[in-house]
Every structure is written in C-alpha cells, then in structure tokens.
Nucleic acid binder design. Structure first.
Lengths: 203, 203, 203, 203
DNA sequence: CATGAATGAGGTTTCATTCAT
DNA sequence: TATGAATGAAACCTCATTCAT
C-alpha cells in the first residue's frame, strides 16, 4: 500500500482511526507546531513507522482532522425556512456557538495552521466563502421581502457579521474568559446582528 | 556587551535599528516561522553573531517589532470629543483602516505569532483590552446621553464590534481580496456599527 | 524511540554498544573536552543523529562509560579473608594497579570530568566513600586483633592511604613516567602502607 | 603596546592588577571553563577590549594567577635545619595545609586546568618535581643519619607521601567535608608520614 | 502491515578574538 | 590606552522522513 492511501483491511481502518483521534487530542494539547509525529504515534499506541503507513506527513493528518471539524461545524446548519429572521439568526448563532464549544480546543489550532499553510488557508477560505454566500443570500431575500434595508451591501454585511461572531467567540475562547459571561456575549451578538440588519425583533 | 542590553554608542544604536527594520522586512516577506536569524542578519548586512549582541532570540526581536507596530496602531486614536457619535465611529474606523493598511504585511504575522507564543498572546490581550475599555466607556457615555439603547451591554458590545472591524479587515487582507471592494467593506462596517448601536446618522 | 531509552531490538542494542565503545576510545584519545559528539558518531560509524537516539548528551554517554569503568575497578576486590594483613595490602595494591593499568588512558579523563561536572563529582565521591569505608572497617578489625595501633583514626587513615595510592598512580600515569620505575613505586606504596599501619611484615 | 606585554604606565599597571585579581575571583567562583573573558572584564570594571590589551588569552591570565599561587604555596617552605625530623614533618604539613587553606578555592581550579592544558600540566610537573626532590634529599639525609630505614627508596617515598598529603587535602576540600574533621585528618597525615618513615616520635 | 531504528539537513546559540573609534 | 561593537567558526540538538527487518 502506498503511504496515505485508504487502507483496505479492517485492522488498517482501525489503526487509521486511532491515529486520527490521537492526532486530534495531541494537536489540541500542544498545538500544531509543538506536536511531533512521535507524540501522535505514541498516543495512538502504534509504532512510529506506522504513522507513515497511513499519512504522508503531519500536515496530511491535520487536514483530515480539520476536514472532520469543518463537517461538524457545518452539519448543523439547518435552514428552517419557516421561521422569521430574528429567530433564525438567534438560532444560527446558538448552533454555531455550540459547535464552537464542542470544538473549542481545536479551533485555535485551526487558526494557527491557517496562518502559515497555504493549502489549509485555501480550504478555510472556501468554507468561509460558502458560509458568507449562504448568509448573503438570506440577506438578499430579506431585502426583497422588505425586512432589511435594501441599501445594505449583502455580501459585505454577511462578511462583517460573520467576522463579528466568529472572532468574538474565538477571542473569548483563546483568552480563556470565564464561562459566565458567555451568555451575555451571545445575547449581545444576537442583538447587534439583528439591529445592524434592522430586523424587527417581534414577529 | 551582553545580549539584549541597550547599546551604549551611536554605532550600536544604528546597528540595532538596522536589525529591527531588517527583521520587520524579513518577517513581512517570509512570516515568523520561515524567518531565520540568518536572514535577518544578512538583510541587515551585519554578521550573524551581531544579531545576538542585541537580541537573545528571534522572539525577542519580533516583540520589539510588534511593540512599534502597536504603538503605531494606537497612536492615531485621536478622541476628538466635539463631534457626534456616528461621525466619530466613521473616523475611527477609517483611521484604524489606514493604520491597518500601513501595516498590512505585518498584521497577519502578528496573528501568526499570537497563535503560539504565550508572551505575545498576553501582549495582544492587553492591547485589545485597552481598546475595548475605551470603546466601552464611549458607549456608556452615549447611553447616559440617551444616544444609545441602555439595554445594550457596553463591554460585550465593544468586544463584538471591535472583533467585527478587526477581523473583517484581517480577512480582507490575508485573503488578498481586490482593493476595489475595500470601500464597500468600510462603508458597511461603519453602517453596521452605527445601526447596531442605534445611533442617529444625522446630527 | 525517545532519546536515552533502552533499545528494544537486538540491532538497537548493538548500535548502543558501538557508541559506548567508540565513545570510550574517543574520550581516551582526545579527552572529554575536546571530544565532539560528531567524533563519537563517526568513530562508531553511525549517523550523527543516531547518537541522540541513545544518549541525550556527551555527558550522558560519559557517565555510562564511567559506570562501566567503576564496575571494573571494583569488581576485582576479592576479600580473601584468610590471609594476613600485610599480604592482603600487597595484593590489594597490585590488583588496584592492574585495574588502573587496564584503564590507564581513561583514568585521567575521569579526573578531568570530576573537576567540573557536579553529577559526576557525586558519583566519584560515592565510590570513594565506599572504598574508604571498606578499608576503614579492615583497619578497625586489625585494631581489635591487636595488629594495628589503636590510637590511629581508622577513617582518616583509610582516606589518607587511599589518597596516597590513588594519586601516586595517577601522577605516575599522567606524567608519563617510564614503566621501569613502576615496580619501585608499587613496592614503596606497599611498604609505606604497611609501616604506617605498624603491621608485622612476616606472619 | 603589544598585547600581553608589561604595561609601562602607572595606570596600565593598575588596570593589569585589577584584571588579575578579578580573574582570580571569577575563576574561583565559576571554574576555568565556565569563566568568560567578559566576566573578568566586568568584574574588574574595565572594558571588554581592555582585557586584550594586557593578556592575549584566558589561558594567559590564568597562568599569571597560577604563578602567584605557586609562589605563595612555596614561599613559606622554610627549611629550619635545626629541628628534628618528626617535628619538621609536622610543621611542613601544617604550613602546607595553611597555604592550601588560603588558596582553597583556587586549588581545584588549578587541578581542573591541569587536566587539559599541556603548558600548565608541565608547570605543575615542575613544581611537584622540585618539591619531591627537596623531600627526597631530606629522606636521604635522614637515612645517612640512621634515622630512616635505608631500604626505603627515597624518591618513591617522597612521591608517595607528597601524593598522600596533597590529595587528602584536595579531596577534603572539593568534597566539602566539614571543617571539624580537618584536625583529625592533619594529625593522621603527620602520624602516617612519621610512622611510614620509621622516624622516632620523640627527640 | 507493523515495528522501531537510522538518517542528516537545518537551525540555534556561544564566545574568543579582532577591530574601529 | 580605553572602549565596546563586530565577527564567524564551531558545536549542539531536533525531528520529519526513510529504511530494514
């Protein structure tokens, strides 16, 4: 088997899974830069050399870890078309926060890698662009429905509000702020979001 | 001379300055991780060892570069107390953008280092906290003056809006978006900011 | 494999042994200070990095070399309880000399390291203390048996006589004195030892 | 002035002296290997570069420090021909001990340098040889006077007894033994010395 | 497939000595 | 002479990746 290819046997699949979950834990613990392939192998209780049976490099396994993370971060975006905008925004923010929470330890590492790995930077850009596009479409729809001021630039607005939510949560977490305040932060994010769009807060 | 001490002679001061500006250029060019002390020394046209006459490590010189950057980023925050809120926000955003623009190449590197260096993370946290406090105070004042909805949490609002502006500009730059759109982005940031606070847009 | 661990395979054990015996030879040849890890690796015909697979530093491998030396230096101390004191001293001195001879090239290096390495200094102190204690016990026994003047301080006497033998041999060797005189020196050491203790020279 | 030459001006002589005494203190404190020229210069409160005005190297200044030490160690050897052997030995041992004591901190450093510096090794050999010769002559004299057993090899005896005294004191000091025991050690050294030679203990 | 040892390029840092002022 | 900066040749150690069993 070539290095990095999908394993065929049951046993191989298990080893590969062990490595991925070990990798995630080690990355969370030490960050990408301070993680050694040896750490991952040891944590997964496999031989050092076995790592390279499944992944061609440390970057490769990180990409796999990140892929699963992105899947989790986007999986829960249920559109729920029936509800009115303010409620949808609140729900979306909460869902995003919960996903963030679930992945709190790995998120800063994602940021870390994004600062120097081009391939990864591109991956993130795409994910973000998709999210912004979705959000932008929603704004346009609300503008057509007369719920949002038509003079707002939908794309830029989507970008800015996504940046606000993303980065606020990111900073909250990396700066290790106390858990108590998070509700206040989330409420504020909802409110600002809704007010910025000029949405009615009651149906 | 021991490493890291302030140079005593004119010549020493000049060499130190050469190193700092060379370091900034090399960091901008290659990022922190891919920068070698050798690159900095070569770029500054001094001997390898001379680097260590002035700085104990790559981290140390980066901290100095960043210090000057932070100074530049905050130096232009002129309060201009007479003007009305919306105008102040617009001006502050533009000033911030101009500073960001001036330092566009080094800003992503700052982010990079912040993801793994604890000392640096703390430095950033402090700078950010100061900015948030200033902004938070302004919001409180406006709330007392009846210009901003008193139900808004001033601190969280300050955090969120700062994150919005910061991160929007950051992403715009690192993702290498075209320069044309920047005006649209800035206008949108102003507008969202003002609307989120519920400020009157005309005096 | 992490540096310094015991190798798990036959091959690993062989490499480790190669390194130790190469190290001993290089240390003998160049002394501790002038030995480079590169020399040891080259002499052992292994890659530079392989050294660090087994030892974290030059000090560490030296400690191992020294450990084996100490083992050799003490292994031959056969008590032979039946014989009378003068004969035992003569035999002990000869055995010590032979061990010294076997390890003549490394002994001065041991002294060298003992002058600046605390860990090693302690190791030597312990070995010496054990030897002194053994010797001291013998003197006490002989005092009880009326063979040695009871007014002698057993511990100090043991220390002094051990220092005499040790250091005489050490100087003889490091000063590269001619091999012919060694018999005269050894005889003199025996005689002084015996006379100092006031032992009868014939049974 | 060429580097290392004797300075001609009053001021130069003072600076040179300052460097020597600073060097001794720093060597005592840190050992030869861990002493940096920078330490010496700083301790002497002279500029780094000034060191090289007076000494061509670290070794050179150490040699000067050691020279003065040797002078002190031998200066007090007053022969006092009138007294009888046992008393002379006792006195010589005490004088040696006092000199050792005065120079306790630097003696181990002397040993250290002697283990790797050829020039210095030779210097020590010479000093030792002189001492051994003096002592050997005394033993011969005593043998002619019928005070010492003529079968003893005077040179080897002198070597052995010198090694005993030297090394016992050396170990006592470097191993940081408590000061209380020193008298017992010195008495034992006297006694062993006298008994080994078979000297009468009373006139 | 698993195992763990082997490799060596690459980067960091030190510091005795030299040099310019 | 005094000063302190400049120099760069060593050494050290790491660790991703490759290889042999």
């Amino acid at each position: 088997m070539e290095t990095g290819e999908t394993p065929l046997t049951e046993r191989g699949i298990r080893t590969r899974e062990k490595l991925i979950s070990a990798a995630r834990e080690v990355f969370e613990e030490r960050g990408f830069l301070d993680t050694r392939v040896a750490h991952i192998a040891r944590h997964a209780k496999v031989a050092y050399g076995s790592f390279y049976t499944y992944f061609p490099s440390k970057e490769a396994i990180f990409l796999e870890v990140a892929d699963r993370l992105f899947a989790d971060m986007t999986a829960h975006r249920v559109p729920s078309p029936g509800s009115e905008p303010a409620a949808r925004i609140r729900r979306a923010n909460r869902e995003f926060y919960e996903a963030y929470q679930r992945n709190a330890k790995i998120m800063p590492i994602i940021e870390q890698v994004a600062t120097f790995n081009e391939e990864f930077k591109e991956l993130r850009r795409k994910h973000r662009a998709e999210a912004v596009t979705r959000s932008s479409r929603a704004i346009e729809r609300w503008q057509r429905d007369g719920l949002v001021d038509p003079s707002l630039d939908p794309e830029m607005t989507a970008r800015a509000l996504a940046a606000m939510v993303d980065h606020s949560l990111y900073l909250w977490i990396v700066q290790g702020e106390d858990a108590d305040g998070i509700e206040r932060l989330l409420d504020t994010l909802d409110t600002l979001n809704i007010r910025a769009l000029g949405l009615p807060t009651t149906p």
